Amino acid sequence: MPAPAGARAAGRGQARQFIINGRFLASQPVGVHRVATELVRHAHSLIEDDPALARRIGMKLWIPADAEERAAALGVPYRVIGPLTGNAWEQLTLPARAGRDTVVSLCNVGPVLRRNAVTMLHDVQVLLSPESYSANFRRWYRLQQPLAGERHRRILTVSEFARDQIVEAGVAPAEKITVIHNGCDHVLADGADERVLEKLGLTQGDYALALSSTQAHKNIPMLLRAFARPELKDRILVLFGSASREQFVAAGHHVPSNVRFTGRVSDNELRALYENAQLFAFPSTTEGFGLPPLEAMRLGTPAIVAPCGALPEACSDGALYVPFDDPAAWTKAIAAIYDNPQHRGELAARALGRAKRLTWDRAARNLLNTLLSL
Protein backbone atom coordinates (compact mmCIF):
# COMPACT_ATOMS: atom_id res chain seq x y z
CA MET A 1 0.00 0.00 0.00
CA PRO A 2 1.53 3.34 -0.98
CA ALA A 3 2.39 5.76 1.80
CA PRO A 4 -0.12 8.59 2.20
CA ALA A 5 0.98 12.16 1.70
CA GLY A 6 2.61 13.53 4.82
CA ALA A 7 3.10 10.14 6.46
CA ARG A 8 6.32 9.68 8.41
CA ALA A 9 8.01 6.46 9.37
CA ALA A 10 7.79 5.48 13.00
CA GLY A 11 10.76 6.41 15.13
CA ARG A 12 13.55 3.84 15.40
CA GLY A 13 11.84 1.61 12.84
CA GLN A 14 9.00 0.66 15.18
CA ALA A 15 5.43 0.48 13.97
CA ARG A 16 3.12 3.21 15.20
CA GLN A 17 0.59 1.70 17.58
CA PHE A 18 -3.16 2.29 17.60
CA ILE A 19 -5.56 0.87 20.17
CA ILE A 20 -9.01 -0.12 18.88
CA ASN A 21 -11.79 0.58 21.35
CA GLY A 22 -13.52 -2.80 21.51
CA ARG A 23 -16.43 -1.87 23.74
CA PHE A 24 -18.77 -2.35 20.76
CA LEU A 25 -18.21 -6.11 21.04
CA ALA A 26 -20.04 -6.14 24.38
CA SER A 27 -23.33 -4.94 22.86
CA GLN A 28 -26.11 -6.54 20.86
CA PRO A 29 -24.96 -5.87 17.27
CA VAL A 30 -26.55 -3.01 15.31
CA GLY A 31 -25.48 -1.31 12.09
CA VAL A 32 -22.60 0.74 13.49
CA HIS A 33 -21.20 -2.40 15.14
CA ARG A 34 -21.15 -4.12 11.74
CA VAL A 35 -19.04 -1.26 10.38
CA ALA A 36 -16.58 -1.48 13.28
CA THR A 37 -16.37 -5.26 13.00
CA GLU A 38 -15.57 -5.23 9.29
CA LEU A 39 -13.08 -2.36 9.53
CA VAL A 40 -11.19 -4.11 12.34
CA ARG A 41 -11.22 -7.49 10.62
CA HIS A 42 -10.08 -6.19 7.23
CA ALA A 43 -7.48 -3.77 8.62
CA HIS A 44 -5.98 -6.62 10.64
CA SER A 45 -5.83 -8.81 7.51
CA LEU A 46 -4.15 -6.07 5.48
CA ILE A 47 -1.47 -5.65 8.13
CA GLU A 48 -0.98 -9.42 8.52
CA ASP A 49 -0.62 -9.92 4.77
CA ASP A 50 1.81 -7.03 4.14
CA PRO A 51 5.11 -7.12 6.10
CA ALA A 52 6.03 -3.63 4.87
CA LEU A 53 2.77 -2.25 6.22
CA ALA A 54 3.20 -4.16 9.48
CA ARG A 55 6.53 -2.37 10.00
CA ARG A 56 4.69 0.95 9.87
CA ILE A 57 1.48 0.38 11.80
CA GLY A 58 0.15 -1.89 14.52
CA MET A 59 -3.43 -2.23 15.76
CA LYS A 60 -4.31 -3.63 19.18
CA LEU A 61 -7.89 -4.59 19.97
CA TRP A 62 -8.69 -3.87 23.63
CA ILE A 63 -11.98 -5.03 25.13
CA PRO A 64 -13.81 -5.03 28.47
CA ALA A 65 -14.38 -8.40 30.14
CA ASP A 66 -18.00 -8.68 28.97
CA ALA A 67 -16.97 -8.44 25.29
CA GLU A 68 -14.84 -11.56 25.14
CA GLU A 69 -17.40 -13.89 23.55
CA ARG A 70 -17.89 -11.70 20.48
CA ALA A 71 -14.20 -10.77 20.37
CA ALA A 72 -13.26 -14.45 20.14
CA ALA A 73 -15.69 -14.89 17.23
CA LEU A 74 -14.15 -11.92 15.41
CA GLY A 75 -10.92 -13.85 14.81
CA VAL A 76 -8.60 -10.93 15.62
CA PRO A 77 -6.11 -10.98 18.54
CA TYR A 78 -7.48 -9.05 21.51
CA ARG A 79 -6.62 -8.14 25.07
CA VAL A 80 -9.05 -7.94 27.98
CA ILE A 81 -8.43 -4.73 29.92
CA GLY A 82 -9.86 -4.18 33.40
CA PRO A 83 -11.42 -3.02 35.53
CA LEU A 84 -15.03 -1.91 34.82
CA THR A 85 -17.32 -2.45 31.86
CA GLY A 86 -19.75 -0.37 29.80
CA ASN A 87 -19.51 3.39 29.57
CA ALA A 88 -17.25 3.55 32.63
CA TRP A 89 -14.72 1.26 30.92
CA GLU A 90 -14.76 3.39 27.77
CA GLN A 91 -14.44 6.73 29.54
CA LEU A 92 -12.14 5.74 32.45
CA THR A 93 -10.35 2.40 32.07
CA LEU A 94 -9.50 2.62 28.38
CA PRO A 95 -7.89 6.10 28.37
CA ALA A 96 -6.12 5.49 31.68
CA ARG A 97 -4.43 2.34 30.36
CA ALA A 98 -3.68 3.50 26.81
CA GLY A 99 -0.45 5.36 27.56
CA ARG A 100 0.87 7.27 24.53
CA ASP A 101 -0.94 5.17 21.91
CA THR A 102 -3.79 6.66 19.90
CA VAL A 103 -7.24 5.30 20.80
CA VAL A 104 -9.47 4.61 17.77
CA SER A 105 -13.22 4.36 18.36
CA LEU A 106 -15.48 3.32 15.49
CA CYS A 107 -19.01 3.39 16.95
CA ASN A 108 -19.97 7.03 17.57
CA VAL A 109 -18.48 7.26 21.08
CA GLY A 110 -14.87 7.50 22.28
CA PRO A 111 -13.13 8.54 25.50
CA VAL A 112 -14.21 12.18 25.42
CA LEU A 113 -11.54 13.66 27.68
CA ARG A 114 -8.61 12.07 25.85
CA ARG A 115 -6.95 14.17 23.16
CA ASN A 116 -4.87 11.44 21.53
CA ALA A 117 -7.91 9.79 19.97
CA VAL A 118 -9.67 9.23 16.65
CA THR A 119 -13.45 8.72 16.65
CA MET A 120 -15.89 7.73 13.93
CA LEU A 121 -19.20 9.60 14.09
CA HIS A 122 -21.58 7.83 11.74
CA ASP A 123 -24.11 10.65 11.82
CA VAL A 124 -25.71 13.36 13.93
CA GLN A 125 -29.18 11.80 13.73
CA VAL A 126 -29.79 12.67 17.35
CA LEU A 127 -29.92 16.28 16.15
CA LEU A 128 -31.71 15.63 12.84
CA SER A 129 -34.34 13.23 14.19
CA PRO A 130 -34.37 13.58 18.00
CA GLU A 131 -37.77 11.87 18.30
CA SER A 132 -36.09 8.60 17.25
CA TYR A 133 -34.10 8.42 20.50
CA SER A 134 -34.68 8.35 24.25
CA ALA A 135 -34.11 11.46 26.36
CA ASN A 136 -31.02 9.99 28.07
CA PHE A 137 -29.52 9.00 24.71
CA ARG A 138 -30.08 12.51 23.34
CA ARG A 139 -28.49 14.14 26.37
CA TRP A 140 -25.39 11.91 26.23
CA TYR A 141 -24.80 12.33 22.51
CA ARG A 142 -25.36 16.09 22.63
CA LEU A 143 -22.66 16.22 25.30
CA GLN A 144 -20.07 13.80 23.99
CA GLN A 145 -20.15 14.39 20.22
CA PRO A 146 -19.06 18.07 20.40
CA LEU A 147 -16.39 17.13 22.95
CA ALA A 148 -15.00 14.50 20.59
CA GLY A 149 -15.14 16.95 17.69
CA GLU A 150 -13.20 19.53 19.66
CA ARG A 151 -10.65 17.37 21.47
CA HIS A 152 -9.90 14.34 19.30
CA ARG A 153 -7.17 14.40 16.68
CA ARG A 154 -9.43 13.34 13.83
CA ILE A 155 -13.09 12.62 13.26
CA LEU A 156 -14.04 9.88 10.82
CA THR A 157 -17.45 9.53 9.20
CA VAL A 158 -19.11 7.39 6.56
CA SER A 159 -20.35 9.82 3.89
CA GLU A 160 -19.98 13.31 2.52
CA PHE A 161 -23.54 13.95 3.69
CA ALA A 162 -22.67 12.94 7.26
CA ARG A 163 -19.56 15.14 7.14
CA ASP A 164 -21.62 18.13 6.06
CA GLN A 165 -24.15 17.50 8.81
CA ILE A 166 -21.39 17.22 11.43
CA VAL A 167 -20.00 20.55 10.26
CA GLU A 168 -23.43 22.22 10.15
CA ALA A 169 -24.16 21.01 13.68
CA GLY A 170 -20.92 22.62 14.89
CA VAL A 171 -19.52 19.30 16.10
CA ALA A 172 -16.23 19.51 14.13
CA PRO A 173 -14.77 21.58 11.28
CA ALA A 174 -14.63 20.07 7.79
CA GLU A 175 -10.82 19.99 7.68
CA LYS A 176 -10.76 17.70 10.71
CA ILE A 177 -13.10 15.09 9.18
CA THR A 178 -12.21 12.14 6.94
CA VAL A 179 -14.90 10.29 4.99
CA ILE A 180 -14.58 6.50 4.75
CA HIS A 181 -17.42 4.91 2.79
CA ASN A 182 -18.67 1.59 4.11
CA GLY A 183 -18.32 -1.68 2.28
CA CYS A 184 -21.18 -4.12 1.78
CA ASP A 185 -19.47 -7.34 0.71
CA HIS A 186 -19.79 -8.84 4.21
CA VAL A 187 -23.13 -10.27 3.06
CA LEU A 188 -21.17 -12.78 0.95
CA ALA A 189 -19.43 -14.28 3.98
CA ASP A 190 -22.41 -16.26 5.29
CA GLY A 191 -24.31 -18.90 3.34
CA ALA A 192 -28.06 -18.42 2.94
CA ASP A 193 -30.30 -20.35 5.32
CA GLU A 194 -33.27 -21.03 3.05
CA ARG A 195 -35.23 -22.65 5.89
CA VAL A 196 -36.33 -19.18 6.97
CA LEU A 197 -38.57 -18.98 3.89
CA GLU A 198 -40.46 -22.13 4.86
CA LYS A 199 -40.69 -20.97 8.47
CA LEU A 200 -42.34 -17.72 7.33
CA GLY A 201 -44.45 -19.29 4.60
CA LEU A 202 -42.63 -17.46 1.81
CA THR A 203 -41.48 -18.43 -1.67
CA GLN A 204 -38.90 -16.84 -3.95
CA GLY A 205 -40.04 -13.52 -5.37
CA ASP A 206 -43.42 -13.36 -3.64
CA TYR A 207 -42.52 -10.66 -1.11
CA ALA A 208 -40.92 -7.25 -0.69
CA LEU A 209 -38.43 -6.88 2.16
CA ALA A 210 -37.82 -3.95 4.51
CA LEU A 211 -36.37 -3.15 7.91
CA SER A 212 -38.66 -3.33 10.94
CA SER A 213 -38.07 -0.20 13.01
CA THR A 214 -40.33 2.25 14.83
CA GLN A 215 -37.69 5.00 14.71
CA ALA A 216 -39.30 8.03 13.13
CA HIS A 217 -36.64 8.59 10.46
CA LYS A 218 -36.87 5.00 9.19
CA ASN A 219 -40.36 5.95 7.93
CA ILE A 220 -41.76 2.39 7.87
CA PRO A 221 -45.38 3.57 8.39
CA MET A 222 -45.19 4.98 4.86
CA LEU A 223 -44.66 1.41 3.58
CA LEU A 224 -47.56 0.18 5.71
CA ARG A 225 -49.78 2.73 3.97
CA ALA A 226 -48.49 1.66 0.55
CA PHE A 227 -49.20 -2.03 1.20
CA ALA A 228 -52.69 -1.19 2.46
CA ARG A 229 -53.61 0.21 -0.98
CA PRO A 230 -55.65 -1.97 -3.39
CA GLU A 231 -52.77 -2.30 -5.90
CA LEU A 232 -50.62 -4.17 -3.35
CA LYS A 233 -53.28 -5.96 -1.29
CA ASP A 234 -52.16 -9.33 -2.73
CA ARG A 235 -48.45 -8.61 -2.24
CA ILE A 236 -46.53 -9.45 0.93
CA LEU A 237 -44.32 -7.03 2.85
CA VAL A 238 -41.80 -8.77 5.14
CA LEU A 239 -40.26 -6.67 7.92
CA PHE A 240 -37.12 -8.02 9.58
CA GLY A 241 -35.74 -6.75 12.86
CA SER A 242 -36.73 -6.31 16.48
CA ALA A 243 -39.84 -4.10 16.13
CA SER A 244 -43.04 -6.16 16.29
CA ARG A 245 -46.55 -5.73 14.92
CA GLU A 246 -47.72 -4.89 18.43
CA GLN A 247 -45.20 -2.04 18.71
CA PHE A 248 -46.41 -0.46 15.48
CA VAL A 249 -50.04 -0.80 16.56
CA ALA A 250 -49.22 0.67 20.00
CA ALA A 251 -47.63 3.64 18.20
CA GLY A 252 -50.93 4.27 16.40
CA HIS A 253 -50.13 2.74 13.01
CA HIS A 254 -52.47 0.52 11.00
CA VAL A 255 -50.71 -2.71 10.02
CA PRO A 256 -52.42 -4.40 7.06
CA SER A 257 -52.86 -8.17 7.05
CA ASN A 258 -50.34 -8.67 4.20
CA VAL A 259 -47.42 -7.53 6.41
CA ARG A 260 -45.33 -10.21 8.15
CA PHE A 261 -42.79 -9.70 10.92
CA THR A 262 -39.74 -11.96 11.25
CA GLY A 263 -38.30 -10.68 14.53
CA ARG A 264 -34.52 -10.84 14.78
CA VAL A 265 -32.89 -13.09 12.19
CA SER A 266 -29.40 -14.52 11.83
CA ASP A 267 -26.99 -13.30 9.15
CA ASN A 268 -27.61 -16.55 7.24
CA GLU A 269 -31.38 -16.07 7.38
CA LEU A 270 -31.09 -12.44 6.37
CA ARG A 271 -29.05 -13.38 3.31
CA ALA A 272 -31.78 -15.80 2.26
CA LEU A 273 -34.44 -13.11 2.74
CA TYR A 274 -32.42 -10.60 0.70
CA GLU A 275 -31.68 -13.02 -2.14
CA ASN A 276 -35.24 -14.29 -2.53
CA ALA A 277 -37.05 -10.96 -2.22
CA GLN A 278 -38.66 -9.34 -5.22
CA LEU A 279 -37.25 -6.03 -4.01
CA PHE A 280 -35.91 -4.18 -0.97
CA ALA A 281 -37.66 -1.01 0.23
CA PHE A 282 -35.93 1.67 2.30
CA PRO A 283 -37.93 4.92 2.71
CA SER A 284 -35.73 6.59 5.36
CA THR A 285 -35.94 10.36 5.64
CA THR A 286 -32.27 10.59 6.61
CA GLU A 287 -29.28 8.22 6.84
CA GLY A 288 -25.62 8.71 7.59
CA PHE A 289 -24.89 6.00 5.03
CA GLY A 290 -27.55 3.29 4.61
CA LEU A 291 -26.16 -0.25 4.66
CA PRO A 292 -29.36 -2.36 4.31
CA PRO A 293 -30.21 -1.40 0.71
CA LEU A 294 -26.60 -1.94 -0.33
CA GLU A 295 -26.57 -5.37 1.30
CA ALA A 296 -29.61 -6.28 -0.77
CA MET A 297 -28.07 -4.75 -3.89
CA ARG A 298 -24.83 -6.75 -3.41
CA LEU A 299 -26.95 -9.91 -3.60
CA GLY A 300 -28.63 -8.78 -6.82
CA THR A 301 -31.93 -7.57 -5.36
CA PRO A 302 -33.35 -4.27 -6.66
CA ALA A 303 -33.66 -1.50 -4.06
CA ILE A 304 -36.16 1.33 -3.86
CA VAL A 305 -34.99 4.11 -1.55
CA ALA A 306 -35.94 7.65 -0.65
CA PRO A 307 -33.66 10.36 -2.10
CA CYS A 308 -32.73 11.52 1.39
CA GLY A 309 -29.63 11.84 3.54
CA ALA A 310 -26.64 9.88 2.26
CA LEU A 311 -28.73 7.37 0.30
CA PRO A 312 -28.13 8.98 -3.13
CA GLU A 313 -24.41 9.12 -2.34
CA ALA A 314 -24.23 5.52 -1.14
CA CYS A 315 -26.57 3.87 -3.63
CA SER A 316 -25.70 6.19 -6.54
CA ASP A 317 -27.24 4.97 -9.82
CA GLY A 318 -27.84 1.49 -8.43
CA ALA A 319 -31.20 2.18 -6.75
CA LEU A 320 -34.62 3.46 -7.76
CA TYR A 321 -35.60 6.69 -5.97
CA VAL A 322 -39.11 7.53 -4.77
CA PRO A 323 -40.16 10.49 -2.56
CA PHE A 324 -40.25 9.56 1.12
CA ASP A 325 -43.73 11.00 1.72
CA ASP A 326 -45.71 9.63 -1.25
CA PRO A 327 -47.33 6.21 -0.58
CA ALA A 328 -48.99 6.26 -4.01
CA ALA A 329 -45.61 6.67 -5.73
CA TRP A 330 -44.15 3.82 -3.67
CA THR A 331 -47.13 1.65 -4.55
CA LYS A 332 -46.64 2.34 -8.26
CA ALA A 333 -42.86 1.70 -8.12
CA ILE A 334 -43.26 -1.56 -6.21
CA ALA A 335 -46.04 -2.82 -8.48
CA ALA A 336 -43.94 -2.03 -11.58
CA ILE A 337 -41.10 -4.26 -10.35
CA TYR A 338 -43.52 -7.15 -9.76
CA ASP A 339 -45.28 -6.68 -13.08
CA ASN A 340 -42.30 -6.15 -15.40
CA PRO A 341 -39.54 -8.80 -15.17
CA GLN A 342 -37.34 -6.92 -17.66
CA HIS A 343 -37.55 -3.77 -15.55
CA ARG A 344 -36.64 -5.78 -12.46
CA GLY A 345 -33.70 -7.39 -14.25
CA GLU A 346 -32.32 -4.01 -15.33
CA LEU A 347 -32.64 -2.64 -11.79
CA ALA A 348 -30.96 -5.75 -10.34
CA ALA A 349 -27.99 -5.40 -12.71
CA ARG A 350 -27.57 -1.72 -11.81
CA ALA A 351 -27.83 -2.55 -8.13
CA LEU A 352 -25.14 -5.21 -8.27
CA GLY A 353 -22.83 -3.03 -10.35
CA ARG A 354 -22.95 -0.23 -7.81
CA ALA A 355 -22.64 -2.42 -4.72
CA LYS A 356 -19.59 -4.24 -6.06
CA ARG A 357 -17.65 -0.98 -5.92
CA LEU A 358 -18.06 -0.68 -2.13
CA THR A 359 -15.74 -3.15 -0.38
CA TRP A 360 -14.46 -3.43 3.18
CA ASP A 361 -10.93 -3.92 1.89
CA ARG A 362 -11.09 -0.48 0.31
CA ALA A 363 -12.59 1.01 3.49
CA ALA A 364 -9.91 -0.56 5.70
CA ARG A 365 -7.13 0.77 3.45
CA ASN A 366 -8.62 4.24 3.78
CA LEU A 367 -8.69 3.85 7.56
CA LEU A 368 -5.04 2.77 7.75
CA ASN A 369 -3.94 5.58 5.43
CA THR A 370 -5.81 8.09 7.57
CA LEU A 371 -4.18 6.85 10.78
CA LEU A 372 -0.73 6.87 9.19
CA SER A 373 -1.26 10.46 7.99
CA LEU A 374 -1.84 11.85 11.50
Rank of each mutant, 00 (worst) to 15 (best):
A208L: 11
L202C: 05
G170D: 05
L299T: 08
A363H: 13
P293Y: 07
L270S: 06
A36H: 09
A9K: 12
S266Y: 06
R55S: 15
E48D: 12
P323S: 05
G6V: 04
A88E: 10
F289N: 07
Q278E: 07
N182V: 01
E168Q: 14
E48W: 01
C184Y: 10
P64D: 09
L239D: 09
A10N: 09
L352G: 01
D164T: 12
P292S: 02
R163G: 10
L237E: 03
R357M: 12
K199M: 07
S105W: 03
Q144S: 15
L84M: 13
H42V: 07
L25K: 04
M1Y: 11
V103S: 06
G31M: 02
R153L: 07
V322L: 00
I81R: 14
M120L: 15
R142C: 12
L294E: 11
T286G: 05
A169V: 14
K60M: 12
L209W: 02
L270E: 11
Q14V: 14
L279S: 12
P2D: 10
V265N: 08
Y133R: 01
T178R: 13
V80K: 11
I337Y: 00
A296P: 05
P230E: 06
A348G: 02
G288F: 04
T301K: 02
I57T: 11
T37M: 03
G75W: 09
S316G: 15
A296I: 04
N108C: 05
V259G: 09
L367M: 11
R357Q: 15
I304E: 00
W360V: 09
A310E: 09
M1K: 05
N276M: 04
A15R: 06
A329C: 02
C107E: 05
L46P: 03
G58S: 13
A73L: 14
K218L: 10
F240C: 07
G149Q: 06
P307Y: 11
Q165P: 07
W62T: 03
E48P: 01
G290H: 03
L25H: 07
T157N: 10
L209S: 08
G241P: 10
V238R: 12
G309T: 06
S132H: 00
L53E: 08
V104Q: 04
A351S: 10
W89F: 04
A72C: 09
A314G: 14
L358S: 06
E90F: 08
G241T: 11
A349D: 12
A364I: 09
E168V: 05
L188I: 03
A348N: 00
E346C: 01
P341E: 02
R138G: 09
